[in-house]
Design a protein around this nucleic acid. Sequence first.
DNA 1: ATATGTAACTTTGATTCACAAAGTACTTTA
DNA 2: TAAAGTACTTTGTGAATCAAAGTTACATAT
Lengths: 99, 99
Amino acid sequence: MINPIGNLNKIFDSRIRLGVMSILMVNEEVSFNDLKQMLELTDGNLASHLSTLEENGFLKVHKGFVGRKTNTTYSITKAGEKAFKGHLAALENMIRSMD
Amino acid sequence: MINPIGNLNKIFDSRIRLGVMSILMVNEEVSFNDLKQMLELTDGNLASHLSTLEENGFLKVHKGFVGRKTNTTYSITKAGEKAFKGHLAALENMIRSMD
DNA sequence: ATATGTAACTTTGATTCACAAAGTACTTTA
DNA sequence: TAAAGTACTTTGTGAATCAAAGTTACATAT
């Protein structure tokens, strides 16, 4: 591929999805509310980006409890990790291999 | 800023504008047609992204000739370089400073 | 002189995306 | 019982993306 942007993953063009993935790369499991606060998003906005990532098989959802309150957490899948690493590699490649 | 995506530049959410900038970071001057071929874009699509970058003061345009044919070239501005470097730093920060 | 070609756009129109705000269902705490 | 929290979904609006076609201006070939 000569085209320097051809290997970038379209899913990660979104800064929010990029942010979610980068958080999940270094944190095994993160709750909906923590993501919401870290990224300063409304519920609806976060939920829609999370479902895009889930539909693409990049993360998985765990519905549980903290004490008696519902608590949904998210973690990255193998496929998500692979795709995200691939995207970062493409970014690095684009930036450095141009000379 | 705690929010890991808060320092990303919105202009560079677009893969195409990211590609243009990364090309112009390492090539002093690049023609419209070269950009078009490198990024595999239609005229209109490239032109619109270029004008967004220009409106933001990130690149400048030189209208010249090659022999007798018109030849428009683009180069990065100081502001563009600064913004792009800032964006890359924010990306790196986001990816690495999360633990 | 006419037609064809090339460069660099602009315009148009359709589709998709992003986002806030409001609504929903369920539970919990005061 | 009322208020608040969790995790959504729905709705509506505006913005962004893109291909395709049209445009302007010059160049070259016939």
